[in-house]
Design a protein around this nucleic acid. Structure first.
Lengths: 259, 259
DNA sequence: CCAATAGTGTCTTTCAGACAGTATCAC
DNA sequence: GTGATACTGTCTGAAAGACACTATTGG
């Protein structure tokens, strides 16, 4: 025998102030709304993440600390959350990545010292080579960091350690059964290169034969000439048939149900 | 050769107004922040979702239309997004469901006619029996609906059709390889009952033998006596060892890689 | 005995994992 | 030829799918 409130509790409270279209001058305090982007790449055979150093002066929280790129939603400029995320990604990297996935949202009264805030987090994978140029042409406050070194010891601004942790788990999880790592390579790429991406992200070797079978069975790659080899047998070049969508394999790479 | 902005664009704009802890009286407009909950159950051998009818009077948008339960984050009362979702769930159902998963967030300038808004969506599964009492004790504006009938024709308020669609896809997807449907049953339950939950959600029959092997191999159930049968062999009763966490099976139920 | 549902055994097919073998380049 | 890397073939073992079989209740 429980009781049930009939109307939306907050809704009711809110409409009691009887201003419908006014988005300013209200009674109820609104949380801050931000968007952050976790940008992964593989450089130097290591999984890396793009971080931005917060300003050391002024009155902003976490001065001088490194953080995920992101910021407040701009009601005038951003038409949607994904739109906002895409712009932040392009601002920092110059890359208009087609693949952008929502990771989740984090919101609480304590995560930002300025007040109640909620952030919508997206993540993406981009080819590292494309961006190194940008980084070189810039100052020290945008940089790639090896994920493992960022996570211990933890030290990012806000709750970005938690967010990054989640992103890495999601990434490693999905790599087991999707074609995600293909987004880490510039096209055209070879199967051995792609295999390397899987190995770097997963942190373990992958069998060559099984790997090739799987990739080709996925029907998401199309041949496009040969890569110019170094001094051995040249590998076939491939590119994604559809650079937007992800292929899901029917099984994971190695069933971990070993007990 | 791309260019890179050094500072967070929105952040900069914002701090230019030079008020750090003030959460009111600013220049920048803030989006509305809401939380919605997709509450699933199985009743009458059908997957159902809890909906709330919006008020027909007043100046609120989508009067009289059905919507997912949810509403504005209350900065005073809610300490976090999940906290907020849990309260809304309990308000509507009286159930303090241990399992609550974040589905994603939807935010844009157009989804709410009152202005830029972003909603954080959670979803949960609860035993239908527990709640039917509550519904009986109440008026007509909280009710269960068969998911299939809600989705076509679509007709929910806001973008709740899209959200529900996503929730159903996520649910069906995860049911293939997790123990999710166990949350649809009151404890103790039997394996045949659990199998039924899988079949209802997936919309197809599941092999008995394989099903039992899988569930028992998952080591997430513990025996607890026998169910009092009707007029045939009584089944063993089980309950979840850990009512909070989900078990992930190494493979999906039926590899859909059939082309 | 029968009906009905719970639970098990067994065969087959499929497929990942392992690894050995072959192919094609530079020198 | 050698060395190096790309690519393929084959065997094996584990597990899912299908389905027949046994078990335990009430009447």
């Amino acid at each position: 025998m429980r009781n049930v409130k009939i109307y939306w509790s907050s809704m009711t409270t809110r409409s009691a102030s009887s201003n419908r279209n006014a988005s300013r001058s209200r009674k109820l305090a609104l949380p801050y709304t931000t968007v952050d982007v976790v940008i992964f790449t593989v450089l130097d055979d290591a999984l890396q993440v793009l971080l931005v150093q917060r300003r050391g002066d002024g009155d902003e929280p976490f001065p001088g600390r490194w953080a995920l790129p992101g910021g407040f939603v701009d009601v005038e400029a951003d038409s949607s959350l994904e739109d906002c995320a895409r712009r932040k990604l392009e601002d920092k990297t110059g890359v208009a990545s087609p693949y952008l996935e929502q990771l989740g949202s984090w919101g609480s009264s304590t995560r930002d010292p300025r007040g109640w805030s909620a952030t919508h987090v997206y993540f993406t994978l981009i080819p590292g080579q494309d961006v190194s140029l940008v980084k070189g042409a810039n100052a020290a406050d945008v940089a790639w960091f090896k994920v493992d070194e960022v996570l211990h010891p933890r030290g990012l601004a806000f709750d970005h350690d938690d967010i990054l942790q989640s992103a890495v788990e999601r990434l490693r999880g999905k790599v087991e059964y999707t074609s995600l790592p293909a987004f880490l390579l510039p096209e055209p790429f070879t199967l051995p290169q792609l295999q390397r991406m899987y190995e770097v992200v997963l942190g373990r070797p992958v069998d060559k034969s099984g790997f090739r079978t799987r990739m080709l069975a996925g029907r998401f790659l199309e041949e496009v000439g040969y890569a110019d080899g170094e001094s051995n047998r040249p590998a076939k070049g491939y590119r994604l048939i559809d650079r937007l969508s992800l292929v899901v394999f029917p099984r994971t790479f190695s069933p971990r149900g070993a007990d």
